[in-house]
């Protein structure tokens, strides 16, 4: 793992980091990954992965309408609002570079 991998992961995870932060992150994650590499010594070829401690399948309940939050309650924590809506930066503004 090098700083280019870290820069790519930071972009995927939508985390803005300075060069200095990327360098520290590279060093710390390398050390953690070296530690977790001990898992490779185990032969797990015939082991089913366990994603969840409970043997759950789908859990269903009756489709009955219940109470919902009012518009006011739902908007109360909005960083920016415009009337009855959440205000967000333009998603499809042609001036935006969305290619990355």
């Amino acid at each position: 793992m090098d700083i280019r991998d870290i820069r790519k992961v930071a972009r995927l995870a939508r985390l803005e980091m300075s060069e200095a932060e990327l360098e520290t992150m590279t060093r710390q994650l390398t050390s953690i990954l070296n530690y977790v590499d001990q898992l490779q010594e185990l032969d797990t070829s015939n082991v089913e992965p366990l994603a969840h401690p409970l043997p759950l399948q789908n859990v269903f309940r009756p489709d009955v309408p219940g109470e919902s939050l009012s518009v006011e309650e739902a908007l109360r924590n909005a960083p920016v609002r415009a009337g009855q809506f959440f205000a967000v930066p333009a998603v499809l503004d042609p001036a935006d570079d969305l290619s990355h």
């Binding site: 939508r14 985390l15 935006d96 969305l98 990355h100």
Partner: peptide, 11 residues
């Protein structure tokens, strides 16, 4: 842009 808004908010 929108992507930087996400990344900066999270950073």
């Amino acid at each position: 842009d929108l992507i930087s808004a996400y990344s900066n908010s999270r950073g």
